[in-house]
Computed example of a mutant assay.
Amino acid sequence: MTDALFPRERAEVAPGAVHVPGWLGPDRQRELLDACRVWARPPAGLRTVRLPGGGTMTARQMCLGLHWYPYGYARTVVDGDGAPVKPLPAWLARLARDAVRDAYGPDGPDGPYGTGADTGGTHEGGRASGRDDGDHDVADDGDYDIALINYYDSDARMGMHRDSDERSPAPVVSLSIGDACVFRFGNTETRSRPYTDVELRSGDLMVFGGPSRLAYHGVPRIHAGTAPSELGVTGRLNITLRVSGLD
């Protein structure tokens, strides 16, 4: 009811950082949630990330395309079960390209913050047209080729950090499913202020590239119990899509 009375609007949080509320429709959210449940199964499934200093991340993670570990990428789960990382399907790479286009407007990937790649299909009502259902239809080289999927329970947090282990300057695409969170978007110089807190709800899109590509960001709070009831999920899933630029 609140959204109906006071619709949330698209906003540029910082130059090149755009928040698009409700970008994923309910059906698309369910499809992504179902896919995440499959990807979370072993081998190369959901894991606890151990940091070099001996601590652990409170958000658990799984990867597609390439496996991220602190602080680099591999083709196997080098800090887990050692299995080959699951492939990133082409439909998910296309969804990332659609997100960049919709966030940045008509110029999309050809604009100042984009990737320069063809966006492929169209995006309607939270769905990407021409989606392939087969997981074996993988993304092409040079396309969006990495997904880091974080699962937050009610007590999980993510400290301020930069997504700096990729060689490509292509924008980061972030999709939210489940519980709402406080997403803290900062600056490129320091983990502290200035920063802006944005509420990300289920279905929201956040894209950051250009001058904001290496901005510090984090999740200081999860709003437990706010996931849409029809999803049947507890906690928050964050699907973060990137172009590695790696050979």
Rank of each mutant, 00 (worst) to 15 (best):
D204R: 09
E124T: 15
R193K: 11
G121N: 09
R157W: 08
L148Q: 06
T196H: 05
T190S: 15
D155R: 14
D204A: 10
N238R: 07
G126T: 07
N150T: 08
G159K: 13
G178C: 02
V198N: 01
E124Y: 13
S212C: 09
I149C: 03
T122N: 12
L175T: 04
D155P: 01
G121P: 15
L175G: 03
G225Q: 04
L148I: 14
I146C: 11
E199Q: 13
L200K: 01
H123G: 11
V138I: 15
S168L: 07
L205K: 01
G210N: 00
D204G: 09
S176M: 04
Y151V: 11
I149M: 03
S176Q: 07
R213E: 10
P194W: 04
G210T: 05
R157G: 04
H123A: 10
S229D: 02
D133N: 12
T226Y: 04
V198H: 06
T196M: 04
M158Q: 12
P169S: 09
R213F: 08
E124I: 15
F185H: 14
T188A: 15
F183E: 03
S176L: 04
F183M: 03
P171C: 09
R201S: 14
D153C: 10
V173R: 07
E199S: 10
G159N: 11
H136N: 10
R157M: 10
S202L: 00
P211Y: 00
M158W: 11
I239V: 15
E230I: 00
S212G: 11
L175D: 05
D140N: 04
A215T: 09
P228C: 06
T196F: 00
H123Q: 11
H217E: 06
I149L: 06
D141F: 13
T122V: 13
V173Q: 07
V233L: 15
F185I: 09
M160C: 10
L237W: 14
H161A: 03
H161V: 01
D153R: 08
A227F: 00
I222N: 01
P220H: 11
P169C: 02
F208K: 02
P220G: 09
G130V: 01
S202E: 02
R221N: 09
G126E: 07
P228T: 03
D179T: 06
A180Y: 02
D140P: 06
Y152Q: 06
D133H: 13
A128I: 07
S174K: 03
M158I: 12
T122C: 10
G116L: 06
A139S: 15
A128Y: 05
N187C: 15
L231M: 06
A117I: 12
T240N: 14
G209E: 01
T196D: 05
R162M: 12
S202M: 01
E199Y: 13
T122M: 12
V172S: 08
I146W: 03
F208E: 01
R162C: 12
G120P: 12
R167G: 14
R167H: 14
H136P: 00
L205W: 02
D137C: 14
R131I: 00
G142E: 12
A156N: 11
S192T: 14
I239E: 03
R162S: 12
T234V: 13
F183S: 01
D165A: 14
L175H: 06
H223R: 13
A147E: 03
